[in-house]
Design a protein around this nucleic acid. Structure first.
Lengths: 356, 356
DNA sequence: CCAGGTGATGAAAGCGCTTACTGTGATGGC
DNA sequence: GCCATCACAGTAAGCGCTTTCATCACCTGG
């Protein structure tokens, strides 16, 4: 209720210096302990700091020393567990060297990706981590690369996480073995006897979508299992897309004994759609996702999926950005996924007439 | 592979001025369009900016104008959907006025809360939003209040979100009607005939824990339903705690027809534990949570819970912080929850011997 | 007793911007 | 036709720090 008068100016380093009876330079030296200072002087300074409740001005410091505490993270949507998991990895790592993590939600819009990058450059971000939303529109990519190069030229660091490298930009990338993961999943299904497998891809034009689908498709081909075009639908990486596309499949009377979705969120939607249609998972239809979000253990039924080391990826990217980890040869490190078998996959129901 | 030479210095406003043949002041004026500039001059400047690929130095600007673009958010854990939902609300709102959101993970440790607040003060954060982890240790609270006052004195703004106000600090709070929500849940259960209801509280010493439990307890009392002490256990706000405590209840042979947990994460754990024991939900035991995380619709079975407007709370807090929303009388706005009935609650099984 | 260290401190020049405060010509009222 | 007015543009003084360079007292060996 009390609306206090707002103090316009705050305590400065000069004030501390005056109070301690030393020069500003000395105060700076004890603050950063960047140079030997005698114990008695140091004491006087720290006491003055405490008495005056001095808090250094980060902007002034950043300006004078041209260093920055901020690490930018550009992400599709923090509230998506896929990203929030990565962000946590980054945050934990950044905290180690006292950096501040600013998160930028692009909501999948390339334009925002660009404008956030610009904002981050204005703040002279120490480093920025670009994750998700790897739209492969060439124009956008070119602009992104341009911004990336600008950032690097300013002395910042750029690391990609979960997306491929940018053309002509010297930035390392942490990626996932999407192809291998999807292959493993496909193999699992084929080995159990599935022959008609539906696949719900992510949004078109995204690298992740392409890699996962390719891994799936190629594995089927290798096993001699045909992939029916009418069983492949695409949509967003969302639960809603999974739900809608599964309903579309069902409405079209498509026949399949397994359904693979490009990520877990879509799988949850698929499970819901199947349940509504009274189709039992896994006895009538098997379902599998990708990512292994924490919630997979609690879905109905618990979801078979491919686990991606999300937090670890974030942490690794952050370490790369901090220069605390050597950049691997070729500039990209690929993290392997792992097939996690739970309860949504079973043998296909044995049917009277063999369908293929 | 190409390790380019890192440019030590970047283009400054003075460079732009020189190129455009005007004074730095003029450049600044067109950049911020803070003062009328003739069209032709403006053109020359913008052209120079583009040609030189000039990007303003945010630190210099912040120092000179004593303004800041950063909004700090102090949170328990970004990867927890409860918080990430709030963060998204904040982020979206902050993006409106071009602010950068820095997120600080305390992992529930009061010490980090404090050190992040300090860091944020160093950065002269425009505002900070404090959410979660409302440990009510008096010493911690006092230090927090101290920091909060310091922030305010520096001209920053402080808003609490999902936690009660700080003593002697003039900061508004956005809170949830925990008491009312828990009451509604209790009433629902009682009306269906439940008489032996177990309750898993959150961590002791947290306001949220206390409020939710009080709402529950008082509603039972009002309905004349006894609350058996052996049916109340407490633990963290985590799935693991829900799982463990439910198992403990079961192991102790406790008898209950309904189980209420202080949040959804715990409820998911409870459902898993019940399932492992072959107990059917909701036919043998009813379960209810609190928060209404997005996953509630996909759990097995879909969870009956109390919906909290998380994203909205974050957005509101952000608007309050930005001064874009008037601070309500009393400084606190309480957002109501809403009972969401799904599939985990049913009438209690009718038993031969009525137990109470 | 003094040249040459050595170790702690101070003076001052920025870092890149904003923003009073001053100048200007060009206008317009009388 | 002259001076107040106006609309821009420039000058320069910071904002609060870091950091180079100079200073100064004091010590050590010859």
């Amino acid at each position: 209720m009390t609306s206090r008068q707002r103090a316009a100016t705050s305590v400065t380093l000069a004030d501390v210096a005056a109070r301690a009876g030393v020069s500003p330079a000395t105060v700076s030296r004890v603050l950063n302990d960047s140079y030997p200072v005698s114990a008695s002087t140091r004491d006087r300074v720290t006491r003055a700091v405490r008495e005056l409740k001095y808090v250094v001005n980060g902007h002034a410091r950043a300006l004078a020393a041209s260093t920055s505490m901020v690490v930018g993270v550009i992400v599709n949507d923090v509230s998506d567990p896929f990203f929030s998991q990565i962000v946590r990895g980054i945050q934990t790592e950044a905290a180690h060297d006292g950096k501040l993590v600013v998160i930028c939600n692009t909501e999948g819009e390339p334009a925002r990706e660009l404008s956030y990058l610009e904002l981050l450059r204005q703040q002279r971000a120490h480093s920025v981590l670009l994750t998700g939303a790897a739209v492969d529109d060439p124009v956008h990519l070119a602009e992104l690369a341009e911004q990336g190069r600008g950032l690097l030229a300013q002395g910042g660091r750029l690391v990609l996480c979960g997306r491929p490298r940018l053309p002509d930009v010297d930035a390392p990338a942490v990626t996932f073995a999407n192809h291998a993961g999807a292959s493993a999943l496909a193999r699992h299904l084929v080995e159990l006897g599935h022959r008609r497998i539906a696949y719900l891809t992510g949004p078109l034009g995204r690298t992740t979508t392409a890699e996962r689908f390719a891994g799936f498709r190629e594995q089927l081909a290798a096993a001699g299992v045909p992939l029916a075009p009418e069983l492949v639908l695409s949509g967003g990486f969302t639960r809603a897309a999974g739900y809608d596309n599964t309903r579309a499949l069902l409405a079209a009377g498509a026949e399949f004994t397994a359904l693979v979705t490009a990520n877990d969120a879509m799988a949850f939607g698929a499970l819901a759609a199947l349940r509504e249609h009274g189709i039992d998972v896994p006895d009538q239809v098997s379902v599998a996702g990708f990512d292994d979000l924490p919630f997979c253990v609690d879905s109905a039924p618990p979801l078979t999926t491919v686990r991606l080391p999300l937090t670890e990826a974030g942490a690794l990217a952050a370490r790369l950005a901090a220069g605390r980890e050597p950049v691997p040869f070729g500039g990209v490190v690929t993290l392997q996924g792992e097939l996690v078998v739970r309860r949504t996959v079973n043998r296909p129901p044995s049917q009277p007439g063999g369908q293929r």
